[in-house]
Design a protein around this nucleic acid. Structure first.
Lengths: 385, 385
DNA sequence: CGAACTTCCTTCGAAATCGAAGTCGAGGAG
DNA sequence: CTCCTCGACTTCGATTTCGAAGGAAGTTCG
């Protein structure tokens, strides 16, 4: 009952890191603590090297506040977003702002040990290259293109990650990096990134990731909804399609088999159109290739039809569409049209349907934020008591 | 950030009311407060007349605990669960246990003022009849068969409640009863009732109410999910049916138009079978009327297909089927079969699919519990400070 | 320019909370 | 029966947190 209270010192760090508070007074207002208590704690946090006092902020009609900021040497997080053939690496500060970014070619199918060891090594090197070798790393976050059990930190039944089933990714990473580790599904990280970065006021959010697969992350009451680890699957729903196609899950006519980037690319290739990465489909659409536009419209209709049921059920404040295919405007337009047409007016009257605002590194931001939200573990011991 | 802390005195009342704690020691363990603080607060609560000390509990190897219970005169809640032609009334204690139950015939279509005034009057009378007139009523809860905006307490766009649209039910009830009022959709109340009463350990729950309509309440992370007030709608999803049928929402072939109790009853009547209330369908099935069984199987298939998408997406710990039609075993069996067949193994591996365990008064229990969870407002002022 | 607010932050006594030590009352072993 | 241990409470000083009051540093307006 007391377990997830939200007032320790870590709450103050979070408020400053997220930019919600810049002064003691704002901290007091947002945290609910007395102003005097805030002053005491800020004092400790400055002594511990987590905060610095830096000039004065803008007056709001009275004395100017003394501006608080995160000390640059307070620490960094190491973050990696793994795809099937590619990893996006970043060193971010405690606020989640990327200080260094890199791409790493890596085939996830060589198995977890080699992949993760390479990722961890590259992350540490990346930090060194950017002069961050001396700043303490406070945690490491890894996004994976498959379901992750939230309790064990294991990958479970991933369809695109041979050799990873039941591998204890979190424990492996924590041990090899020597840091608190966070392992999460990539769409979930993206959802957190979008929410905290672009829609912080909203409580309920659906974020769809349209890439080679179709992923979805869900924010409920401001928090990531994981279910038992499989929540957010929208790609293995049966749809009614003209032709039949089998899906990797063993059932026929899943959404994924017809509307995912991989499926679209395969369909275009069958028509003699060269497509490399599924992300290229958006380029083809922008270039006005009619087959691509048509394919994308069909996919949009299928995706939209699946989403109508989910929007009625979940009644989110916003539906965000991201991933490499979200650049294909007709796709988004079709999805939007189907939802507004078919859903209950009550469910759509205040529904915002938008494309990603946090950009391609939304997952990186999300991982940073989740690591920050788990930071009480190392912040509290750092204080001189 | 401090707004929803869970330690005031009300938390102790809640722990005792829900039966989680029976002694000061248990309160200390569960609340996270120091034992000495618990003792102080319990003292105050006894003085305020909310707790009584009653004998001793069982020893756990040392001194026996002094058993704490809710004082009977601590208060009651008045609760009503309204249907289209019928209201179920109850006076419950703070723990949600019904002390008096009654049924009231009332046609909801005469409009909100008359209906609610009659309900409030009957509730007060019910309390008097059972000698509870002197016990203070601490709140009133009303369940309605339509969507309720959680912020305003208004009914919004109800399809079966003519004259109720945008009526400020919560304010009206609060004023006319002179009590804190809670107004909530009936399926949502049922979900809370099932969760707290029968599945308290589970975090994520879907509760389907199969009556004349098809309702659904959702518990996420242990709390009722309302969305913007429309969450939980599963009945206006397009399905693929053999014959076409129009739904009240304006779209063709909604689930509700084919699989709701009202739709089934109409279909059976068209076959010359007399059906009164939709609840009778379960009796017909039990009596072995083949048309009823067949209709119910078809409905189960349709409902199950809609639920597969939602189960994959939401990944609940349990799916509970209640409402008057849940007594029709073939219906439940068909739903269960479709879900296990079609859903991802990951989503069903630990999924429990069960019929209601809290029984027909689940909504009553849910209302009581929600009122208890909002009880801080009147408990804290009641203490002598 | 100066008086009257505003807002930010600190000071300091009051109140709440904690936690270590003690008391109370039970069960169990010898 | 007696002693021992354990768990349930209480007591009481130490610590934390609060909140009212006040000083500091601005803005606004006559």
């Amino acid at each position: 009952m007391r377990n997830n209270r939200d007032d320790g010192p870590a709450a103050l760090v979070r408020l400053v890191a997220t930019g919600q508070a810049e002064s003691r007074a704002e901290l007091a207002r947002l945290s609910g603590l007395a102003a005097s208590s805030v002053s005491l704690r800020v004092e400790q946090l400055i002594e511990a090297g987590l905060f610095t006092e830096e000039g004065a902020g803008a007056s709001r009609g009275g004395r100017r506040p003394r501006r608080l900021r995160l000390a640059p040497e307070a620490g960094v997080f190491l973050v990696a977003d793994l795809g099937a053939h590619h990893a996006r690496l970043a060193v971010v500060d405690l606020a989640g702002t990327p200080l260094a970014l890199a791409d790493l070619a890596c085939d996830i199918s060589v198995g977890p040990e080699r992949t993760l060891a390479a990722v961890i090594g590259s992350l540490r090197e990346l930090a060194r290259e950017h002069g961050l070798g001396d700043v303490p790393a406070r945690g490491i976050g890894v996004g994976l293109p498959g379901p992750v059990d939230p309790h064990t930190g294991q990958v479970v039944s991933p369809s695109r990650m041979p050799g990873w089933n039941d591998f204890p990714v979190r424990d492996f990473v924590a041990e090899h990096a020597g840091l608190p580790a966070l392992v999460e599904n990539d769409a979930n990280l993206m959802a957190v990134g979008e929410h905290r970065h672009s829609w912080p006021g909203l409580d309920n959010l659906m974020v769809i990731k349209l890439g080679s697969g179709i992923g979805c992350g869900v924010i409920v009451a401001g928090r990531l909804h994981r279910g038992r680890g499989a929540a957010g699957d929208i790609s293995h729903v049966r749809i009614l399609a003209e032709a039949s196609a089998d899906c990797s899950c063993g059932h026929p006519d899943c959404l994924e088999a017809h509307a995912s980037g991989a499926a679209l690319a395969a369909g275009l290739r069958a028509q003699g159109i060269a497509v490399g990465q599924p992300g290229q489909i958006a380029d083809l659409v922008a270039d006005g290739v009619p087959q691509a536009t048509s394919a994308v419209r069909t996919a949009g209709r299928l995706i939209g039809e699946v989403l109508t049921a989910l929007v009625n059920f979940f009644n989110p404040d916003a539906l965000v569409i991201g991933g490499s295919l979200s650049g294909a405007e007709p796709l988004v337009a079709t999805i939007r049209g189907v939802i507004y047409e078919r859903c209950l007016p009550l469910a759509t009257r205040n529904l915002e349907i938008a494309t990603s605002r946090a950009g391609p590194d939304a997952s990186i931001l999300g991982a940073g934020r989740l690591l920050l939200e788990r930071s009480a573990d190392w912040i509290e011991p750092a204080l001189t008591r």
